[in-house]
Each structure stands twice: as structure tokens, then as C-alpha cells.
Amino acid sequence: MRYAMAVDTKKCVGCSDCVVACQTENDVPIGYCRDWIVEVTDGTYPQLELEHRSERCNHCENSPCVRCCPTGASHYSDGGIVMVTKNKCIGCGACIASCPYDARYTHPKGYVDKCTFCIHRVQKGQQPACVAVCPTKCMYFGDLDDPNSDVSKVIKKRKYKTLIPEAGTKPQLYFLI
């Protein structure tokens, strides 16, 4: 099993609904967020191109954050979802420094926190909150090992990119372009 997510940059309008949905679903402390929207403007007026990306932890297959964690708090869970065990985390910040995407933060309670792909929902067969709530339905989630999953199908059909693949992290967040 290999969970992954695809985000359609052509459909995303940057409404930030996914950000709010995540904050509500996961009780994210005020002032923090686990996902965010990047708006890219390319070119000079009037030849402009716009891209919207809903970003979060890439649940990398070769995660520097798991590698550098001294206690094993950061680990791979079901389907390669990268998780942090609260009562093993010492809050040393090594994983935060190691993530090229700055996807992690220290929770005010001291442990490190980040996107979980809503593992608690996924294990019940539901979609992650951000995917479920998106008004343009621009996000696809599922198992890459299953050729019939939403994400496998859309990745087969469309062109995509990942973020800084040259960092060697093997990110599992696919941006459809």
C-alpha cells in the first residue's frame, strides 16, 4: 500500500477551504496550519500564468525527517504515511530542520506536529478532510498500488510534477499540470 495525493493545479482556485477544513478536523492550534496555498505568477503582464497549489507534508518515501529523528518518534505508518508519536517526541527540532518543504512545526504543547493525511479518517475508509471539502474537487487521494484508485487513475491520465524531486525525498504529493 502506498498512499498518495494528487492536486490539480488547473482546477484549484486558491479558496483555502482545505486549510480551514484541516484546522477544524485536526484541532490545529490557532495561528498554525498543516496545509497552505501557494500562488505562483509566472511571466510579465499581459503574458501571465497562474498556478495554485494546495501544499502539505509530502509523506516522502525517503523522508529526511524520519531518518534524522533520534527517538523514532517520526516514523512510517500504514501506507507510508509519515507520523509523529507524541510521547516519543522530545521536541529537538531536528526533523523540522531536515524538511526541505518546511511542512512541520512545534505544537504549543511541545511535540512536533504536521499533516497526517487524516490517517484517522483514511483508516475508516474516508477521504482526508481537505480532499473531502474541496469545492472544485481538485484533490485525489488513494493507494498508488491499486490501479483503480482515484489517484492512480488521474496520475496515469495527466501530466504531473512533484516539488523539488532533486532533494531526493521521493515526495508523494503529485501536482497535476
Binding site: 496550519c33 497552505w36 501557494v38
Partner: peptide, 11 residues
């Protein structure tokens, strides 16, 4: 630009 206003402390 991050347009959703990410301001995670220390990040």
C-alpha cells in the same frame, strides 16, 4: 507566495 497566510511560529 503563500496566499493562505501560513505563519507557523519559528518556521
Amino acid at each position: 507566495l503563500i496566499v493562505s497566510g501560513r505563519m507557523n511560529p519559528h518556521i
